[in-house]
Amino acid sequence: MATKLGDWMDDRTGWRTHHATIFLRKIPKINWSYTLGSATLFTMFIQIVTGILLTLYYVPEPQQAYASVSYITNELPFGWLIRGLHHWGASAMVLLVVLHMVRVIIYGAYKYPREFTWITGVALLLLTFAFGFTGYLLPWDQRAYWATVVGTQIGEVTPVVGDTLRAVMLGGEEISGLTLTRFYGAHVWVLPSLLLLLVGIHIFLVIRNGITSVPKRGE
């Protein structure tokens, strides 16, 4: 029965070929540092799942943002876990994505034929920082607010367009409810869309080109 269903599915989707391409391929012998990429991917999934769960209660409006985060943290069953995972997952993801990049540099894995994989990786690194920056404001507590004040003021020194850039980013001269909603929109819709797209390309290329082998001395 299972085989029959599998055959039917394979006929309509060709999944066996895809499955074999993804899972049954052979990989050069590699060491533990090669798990950093998949670990980053794993924390990304944690962030997606916990992030979605947080949006069930979070309201991006100054008074309610704080009240809802407080409700999630202090009153909802396992709210502390969901928010805690998301909070620490963010730090973990930044750390892992940087270590992953360092590993790639050390093994020269950005070289032919993986140049484009590398460029998507750099974009993903920047995206991760953007996630961290926009997400930091959302709880709307003192730490969030003032870190964003400092963060956006730093950007103000950009020559010529600095002031305009900051005003556009904040939706006004000062941090306000408008800033909160646009940071929320970026953190929940814009950045994840880009992230999924880039991660998709990145993983496709990793599978297509294979993972780098550990270079031997003199190679």
Partner: peptide
């Protein structure tokens, strides 16, 4: 580890 807490978390207010 995520799923079970998530169920309680989602169901929280109904309780």
């Amino acid at each position: 580890g995520i799923g079970v807490p998530a169920v309680f978390y989602v169901a929280g207010p109904s309780q």
